[in-house]
């Protein structure tokens, strides 16, 4: 009884503000402009080569960015958790990128990566390059474009992952690890045998939240390159639903949203299965 009571407010909240729009979106994605039931919106998407590009680009970005971000964020969290002198200030510093608004992130990188931006100006001022050898950051091919996006995205969201992990590490407490050290464990053994298993729920949370938002990456791409130059899933949703200004495309945007939701949930379930979070929970509870 108690757990259901605790969860009731969430359920009520979501049924008022969220459920209706979602059901409506799903229903409307199966109707055409004249209100007739159809799957034509989905057929349009599956026939469009841009959708498959978006799918593969998104997959590439997600796999690499989530991996890189997790490794770096975990390292950073462990580092800060050693509580060296000034670690608190360092944490503050590490959190800044996350708190910047989109307008700042866009202005920062577009003015930095432009041919006559601050990055080239910096390199030139310190004599690393000259005018003839300036770097065309934004003129690269598809692969380098995606790498650039991954780097920028990592810069922005590493703190997000790091803080969840750090918060989890705080709960473990020094004494547990000290105990491990007393029994002669090396630092790496303690990390592998004690810290990571105890941190498992937190890692799962950080990863799953990150995977969900990584699949929905779009804004930084549009800020730098505009729509349709490096198609990714959510950018296509925004383009169709929000930007093209016609009901026909709006419905395609809705159908795409449904597909994105399915893809994201599949990825989430897959992650939970592979990482064993599901089974473990049940075992623990029983």
């Amino acid at each position: 009884m108690v757990p259901y009571l605790l969860i009731a407010p969430v359920v009520i909240y979501y049924s008022i503000f969220w459920l209706f729009p979602v059901l409506n979106a799903i229903i409307e994605s199966f109707r055409n402009v004249d209100g007739i039931w159809t799957v034509s919106n989905y057929i349009h998407i599956f026939k469009d080569p841009v959708f498959y590009q978006a799918l593969s680009n998104t997959a590439f970005i997600v796999i690499f960015s989530v991996t890189i971000e997790f490794i770096l964020a975990f390292g950073l969290a462990l580092l800060i958790n050693t509580k060296f002198r000034g670690s608190s200030m360092f944490l503050f510093l590490a959190m800044i990128p996350m708190s910047l608004p989109a307008v700042a992130v866009g202005a920062m990188w577009s003015s930095g990566l432009a041919t006559r931006g601050w990055l080239n100006s910096f390199l030139m001022t310190f004599g690393f390059i000259d005018d003839a050898s300036k770097i065309l950051f934004l003129a690269g091919g598809k692969m380098s474009t995606m790498l650039l996006i991954i780097i920028i995205d990592a810069w922005t969201v590493i703190p997000f992952v790091m803080i969840i992990l750090l918060a989890g590490l705080q709960g473990i407490g020094e004494d547990v690890r000290e105990a491990g050290a007393i029994f002669g464990g090396t630092k790496f053994q303690i990390l592998r045998k004690i810290t990571i298993p105890m941190l498992k729920p937190t890692i799962t949370t950080a990863m799953i939240l990150r995977i969900i938002s990584a699949i929905q990456i779009w804004l930084i791409i549009v800020l730098l390159y505009g729509f349709n130059r490096l198609p990714v899933l959510l950018e296509q949703v925004v383009l169709n639903y929000d930007q093209l200004g016609a009901e026909y495309f709006e419905r395609i945007g809705l159908a795409l949203s449904v597909l994105v939701a399915i893809i994201v949930s599949a990825a989430a379930v897959l992650y939970l299965k592979v990482s064993g979070s599901f089974e473990k929970e049940v075992k623990q509870d029983e």
């Binding site: 108690v2 939240l209 929970e281 509870d285 029983e286």
Partner: peptide, 27 residues
Amino acid sequence: AFARYFFKGKNILKLSVLFVRMFPAVS
């Protein structure tokens, strides 16, 4: 509730809570 109690439909419920973030907010 999710951390301390065991109850029927916990995994499904926990996942569906997450589904809120999975459906693109823009639409």
